[in-house]
Design a protein around this nucleic acid. Sequence first.
DNA 1: GACCAGGCACATC
DNA 2: GATGTGCATGGT
Length: 230
Amino acid sequence: MSSTATRAVETLLAAFGPQRWWPAETPFEVCVGAILTQNTAWTNVEKAVANLKKAGMGDGRRETGEAQFVAGLGVERLEELIRPAGTFRVKAKRLMRFCRWLIEEHGGSLDGLFGRSAESVREALLEVPGIGPETADAIALYAGGKETFVADAYTHRILARHGWLDWESGYDEVRGWWMDGLEKDAALYNEAHALLVKAGKEFCKAKAACDACPLKPMLPEGGPRERERW
DNA sequence: GACCAGGCACATC
DNA sequence: GATGTGCATGGT
């Protein structure tokens, strides 16, 4: 008997097809995007990443060069370049701290960071100020291919609407629910998260939109469990 | 013109 | 430890 989590992901995969996240050219670019997308629409992040690449960050430098390059820009120049992503002062500082940390602790190489267990990678990332649970999981999964789940607001909302978990549940509970229910497989976690974001964006906006969601047959009696504000 | 979008750190109670 | 607030932009 497959789990609810597995059936939900299979349903979304059948409906939408593979999403092939994360949209980035290098693992380092994933890290940058993960930090820049905090509380920000992805379209704004794309502009900021494009600016960074135009300035010289990118495939040519690949890992060891990329962190050094960004760190070498200095906070003020970094602020200019990432401005379109919003909260640029905060994010420039966070990005800079991440790069410096990567250089000091891992010689600027992500390979050095990722050569250990998923939990260990996650814990290391969480030590860096500016990187919280969601950003840490996004980096570990999408840049490092580590087996961890990105439990963002969409994944939580879908669980709560279906009555599979409480609205009051915290980040770790949401993450645990998905990881307990799905096969332990980074490629699956990757695809599952991307599919849930797509479903959440398209179908969780309003009750009318919910009717068209592929997951609708999995809703409890009486429809989605709604909550004020969210 | 308000509200939101793929959070986090910090202050305050 | 729960709750509130600042960060700041571009799209709707």
